[in-house]
Simulated scan of single mutants.
Amino acid sequence: MKTIRWGIIGTGTVARNFAHDFAYAKAGELTAIASRNKETADQFAADFNVDLAYIDYFSLINSDQVDVIYIAVPHHLHYKIAKACILANKSILCEKPFTINHEQSSELYDLAKERNVFAMEAMWTRFNPVIEQVYDWIEDGELGQLNSIQASFGFVGPSDPEHRLLNKSLAGGALLDLGIYPVFLAQLFFGKPDFIQNQAVIGDTDVDIFNQILLGWEQGQLAILESSLISHSPNKAVLSGSKGYIEIDGPWFMSKSCRLIDVDNNERSIEFDFPGMGYQFEIDEVNRCLEEGLLQSPNFSWQDSLQLISTLDEVRDDIGLYYDGEEMPMDEHDIHDHHHEHHHHKH
């Protein structure tokens, strides 16, 4: 089997963490890096022993030394870069959110299908061994009927208003960067919600810095989710059912331990000892899919990705948070087909 050759576009923290964990992947070779800054590209290449350092994204995209590209640039560039990769017939693993909205994501997945190119949103948490364990426990009926999921992702964010997390022109805000994880967890088990309620705090740079989301499903399940750039949070997740509950230790989205507690308070703990942060598991998944000739991962499919962004779109509609190039909806009643609470406080 010929080695799958990877390129990375972007050299920020996430790209570095990914490149670090690449060493623990079962297969594949990291062959190229692209940054718009030569020094950064060269430094990254030296740090991770990468042969090719490009100083513009399109040189890497068009390189015949690369089979699959990991896209780790700020959110607002995902659509443009991912589209260029697909048109160049390069497989992609694009950082979450795959794009900033459902319309863009849907267009890209259609294009990937048309061009016969593999594409996946980099929802690395889906492949974390703890999440896999929790998934198995629930599939096996260990919790009986799963009723409730509570999850948060919060930390005290940057104070620099230009930072990508706070910068509106870079599609910043807590929801798309952090809130996507708790929403993913809820939808992994319950699917797309039937009801959405949301409370948000908008910061000085006009993006959300704190939100709490309540999701509901026709069958009676509920999820309480939080994302924050202003609070230091435990970042644990709890899943509760008729036979017991599961606690995922923080940070739950990259956890190494969890426990199942039954109604008699008997506890089963499980710990995983894996190196790095766990990006290797999504790399393994992409390599597997490419070897099997799949266009999408059955474990985090295009539909999963589209349902996720569609919930985030609804929450943003409710907040009234629109990014550059997005149309504000003309018609109020189009968006608010669900019961929404409207209380948006300036922070």
Rank of each mutant, 00 (worst) to 15 (best):
A186V: 09
I319L: 13
L295F: 11
A72F: 02
E341C: 02
Q219N: 15
R288P: 00
Q280Y: 00
S297E: 08
A53T: 11
Q65P: 04
F195Y: 05
C85Q: 09
K243Q: 15
M330P: 05
E162Y: 04
A19M: 03
W217K: 03
H342K: 12
F22W: 10
A45P: 07
E267S: 13
E314H: 15
R36G: 05
Q145K: 15
I4F: 04
A171M: 09
T3L: 07
A223C: 12
N37H: 11
T205S: 10
Q303I: 04
V183R: 07
L214N: 00
E95G: 10
H336T: 12
G172W: 11
I209W: 04
K26A: 08
D206E: 14
G157T: 04
H345D: 08
N147Q: 13
L260E: 07
T40A: 13
D249Y: 09
M328Q: 12
R5Q: 15
Q307T: 03
H339Y: 07
L214G: 00
Y57K: 07
P158M: 03
A23I: 12
L52E: 08
E326A: 08
Q303P: 00
S305D: 10
K26I: 01
K2R: 05
F118A: 14
K80P: 00
N235I: 07
S233N: 14
D331Q: 05
E29Y: 06
E226M: 09
A53E: 12
I138F: 05
C289A: 15
V134Q: 11
M328C: 03
K168Q: 10
D249R: 09
G7L: 09
G293W: 06
T99D: 06
I246W: 01
T99M: 06
A19S: 07
A53M: 12
I180K: 05
S231C: 01
F274C: 07
